[in-house]
Amino acid sequence: MWPRSERGAGVNATTINPLDIATAEQHPDGLLRPVPFRGYMLLCGTRSIEVWSNSGNPEGFPFSWSHTIPSGLLSQHAIAGGTDEFAEILLWVSDDKTVRRLDGYEPTVVSPSWLNRRLSALQNQHTLEACVYTSAGHKFWQLSCDEWSVAFDVTTGKWSERNSYLQKRSRITQAFPIGDAFPNVTKWLCGDMLSEKLQEITADALREDGQPLVWMMESGEVKNFPNSIQVARADFDFVPGVGIATGDDPIQTDPSVEISWSNDGGLKWSRPLIRKLGRQQIAQHPPYVLNTGLSGPRGRRWRITISDPVDVMFFGADQKADVRAT
């Protein structure tokens, strides 16, 4: 139920007409928060989201019910987007523990099964916090809680982890754009959970307030079921020569990648082997490892990790049973 000012007194009046109210039209689920979206007002409840429009009613509540979206909001801060600066893209955590995007009036599920399981296992749903930002032409919707952070690249449709160095979750909180009116947004700023500073989100930042931004990727299982594989060689195709000649030595001048593997589906990992990515503009053979033994009954998984502050581009990897194969 939502009261409004007495029409005769004006929108900024302090007097309230007790008859100027509106109620939920389909589910009496209460109101968690209102969200403006494409000229409408989305009234988000725990079981549904109602779309209301300003129809200029001469009496009573000034907005009129238009449509009901059959998806609720899990917690008050688990919704973000919908503004001009974010191309009017709105995503939220639904009451069924999935992440959904509003396509017209259709709440389309965009979360993968592993994220749905995390949301289902969450002990305190009220710690969920969503925010949006753009970087290097990509639009990101980020979801955090006390235990983890994930980011959805709306541009590519891919999900990734977004934890900060030695932290369970991302330091980013409450991102917002600054600059002239849309589309001339010049910067995206955010709060910092650790330093309590105001930070800028930019692709030019290779560290996070002085701390490493760790890049890590894990492969699926490479199998030859039911047989084990003699892993004689594995090649990892990175863009070479990404060192920065004028950067910090050696983490920028001669950057490295750590390569490790698991034979039990990711429960235990080998000690990482360090390989070079190449000094600035020096072309070299892509990083590789030799004679890493037999894969396990669940195949072989690979993990590559880079903490050095350089730009990285990865194309793929290849695993061979014969060291002579190229």
Rank of each mutant, 00 (worst) to 15 (best):
Val323Cys: 12
Ser160Pro: 07
Gln281Trp: 08
Ser260Asn: 15
Gly82Glu: 02
Glu200Ser: 13
Arg279Asn: 04
Gly82Lys: 10
Asn291Ser: 13
Asp95Thr: 10
Val310Ile: 15
His27Glu: 08
Ile89Asn: 04
Tyr165Gln: 00
Leu194Ala: 13
Phe182His: 12
Asp192Trp: 12
Val323Gln: 09
Val35Glu: 01
Cys145Ile: 08
Val11Glu: 02
Glu221Lys: 13
Gly179Leu: 10
Glu221Ser: 15
Asn17Tyr: 11
Gln26Gly: 00
Asn227Thr: 13
Thr15Leu: 14
Tyr288Gly: 07
Pro255Ile: 09
Asp192Pro: 01
Thr246Cys: 03
Ser228Met: 11
Ile49Leu: 04
Gly293Ile: 04
Glu200Asn: 01
Phe314Ala: 09
Ser53Pro: 00
Pro177Met: 08
Arg207Leu: 06
Ile172Tyr: 09
Arg101Asn: 01
Ser113Val: 12
Val239Tyr: 06
Val35Gln: 01
Gly39Asp: 03
Arg171Met: 12
Ile259Met: 13
Gly296Pro: 15
Gly30Lys: 01
Pro107His: 06
Thr186Gln: 12
Phe37Tyr: 15
Ile274Ala: 15
Ser75Arg: 07
Ser53Val: 07
Leu294Ala: 08
Asp308His: 10
Ser256Arg: 11
Leu267Asp: 05
Asp96Gly: 07
Ile304His: 04
Phe225Trp: 05
Gly137Glu: 02
Trp269Arg: 04
Gln284Gly: 02
Thr68Asn: 02
Asp235Ala: 14
Thr173Leu: 11
Ala175Cys: 12
Val323Ile: 14
Val154Gln: 03
Glu208Ala: 03
Leu90Glu: 02
Gln76Asp: 09
Leu102Val: 14
Gln199Trp: 00
Ala24Cys: 06
Ala136Trp: 02
Arg101Cys: 05
Leu213Cys: 13
Thr15Phe: 08
Ala80Ile: 00
Phe152Gln: 03
Glu85Met: 15
Arg298Pro: 02
Ile49Lys: 01
Asp96Thr: 05
His27Phe: 08
Leu267Val: 14
Arg169Pro: 03
Ile69Tyr: 02
Lys276Asn: 10
Trp92Asp: 08
Val231Cys: 07
Glu258Pro: 03
Thr186Phe: 00
Asp153Thr: 08
Val257Asn: 02
Glu147Tyr: 04
Gln123Ala: 05
Asn57Ala: 13
Ala181Lys: 10
Trp261Ala: 10
Val257Met: 05
Leu91Tyr: 02
Thr127His: 04
Lys276Gln: 13
Val239Leu: 15
Ala151Asp: 07
Tyr40Lys: 13
Ala13Leu: 11
Leu73Thr: 03
Pro240Leu: 07
Thr156Pro: 06
Thr292Ala: 08
Ile304Asp: 04
Gln319Ser: 07
Val323Trp: 06
Leu31Arg: 00
Glu25Ser: 11
His138Gln: 12
Ile89Trp: 01
Thr173Phe: 08
Ser144His: 01
